[in-house]
Simulated assay, not measured.
Amino acid sequence: MKQVEFFFDVGSPYSYLAYHQLPKIAQAKGADIVWRPMLLGGVFQATGNSSPATIPAKGRYSNVDLERWAKHFGVPIQQNPHFPINTLQLMRGAVGMQLRSDAEFHRYLAAIFSAMFEHPRNLGDLQELAAVLEAAGISPALMLELVQDDRIKQTLRKTTEEAVARGVFGAPTFFVGDEMFWGQDRLHFVEAALA
């Protein structure tokens, strides 16, 4: 079975766009997606990279670019006024849900991505996060338990280190075999590699 690895962070708007597009591509090409939640902040730290938002002109351009891509993909997007949000707990949550079950993982991702980029909420605020989780049928108490679990912390750390070791410097990043593709604007190359 063909597969594509998807390294992402829920704080990355371009990961959000890829999250909506990649499943369509994988399905059309008969490929599996290997979901690889990583900590983008850790990747930035290890590689000396930084968010486009840290450069004012690039940040302004990125907002226009995101709207163009969202329109191109037919996906809703809104700027989250609470940015930047530290995604450490959110990404530990993603790893924890993934270790529990596919269904819970995908329900979690849908809720978090939506609250980040469709109906922006302050996910750095624990009460806001709890409300988003509850609305998605996910127990906030379970989330709290997961983000404190050492195995989950280690798994996120290892995936982030593996990403850096394999050349990842930003999100989203895809691998088809050893071939790396960075950015939702390279999805046509991912599609070609899967063909």
Score class of each variant (00 low, 15 high):
residue 114 S to C: 03
residue 118 E to G: 10
residue 91 M to R: 08
residue 107 R to H: 13
residue 120 P to D: 11
residue 89 Q to D: 11
residue 111 A to N: 12
residue 96 G to L: 04
residue 97 M to D: 00
residue 89 Q to H: 12
residue 116 M to P: 04
residue 104 E to W: 05
residue 89 Q to V: 14
residue 109 L to T: 07
residue 105 F to V: 04
residue 100 R to H: 07
residue 97 M to I: 08
residue 103 A to T: 08
residue 126 L to C: 08
residue 99 L to G: 00
residue 95 V to G: 05
residue 113 F to L: 01
residue 111 A to V: 11
residue 92 R to F: 02
residue 113 F to H: 01
residue 105 F to Q: 11
residue 98 Q to W: 03
residue 102 D to K: 14
residue 126 L to W: 07
residue 91 M to K: 13
residue 98 Q to S: 09
residue 95 V to T: 06
residue 101 S to P: 11
residue 100 R to V: 02
residue 113 F to T: 02
residue 116 M to A: 05
residue 116 M to K: 09
residue 96 G to E: 08
residue 117 F to D: 07
residue 120 P to L: 12
residue 108 Y to K: 03
residue 114 S to Y: 01
residue 117 F to E: 06
residue 101 S to G: 10
residue 95 V to Q: 06
residue 97 M to R: 10
residue 90 L to I: 11
residue 125 D to G: 10
residue 122 N to Q: 14
residue 94 A to I: 06
residue 118 E to L: 04
residue 126 L to N: 14
residue 123 L to G: 12
residue 100 R to N: 09
residue 126 L to K: 14
residue 94 A to E: 08
residue 124 G to F: 09
residue 112 I to T: 01
residue 120 P to G: 13
residue 104 E to S: 10
residue 115 A to T: 06
residue 109 L to G: 05
residue 97 M to G: 02
residue 103 A to K: 12
residue 118 E to H: 11
residue 96 G to Y: 02
residue 89 Q to I: 12
residue 113 F to Q: 03
residue 122 N to W: 07
residue 102 D to W: 03
residue 125 D to Q: 11
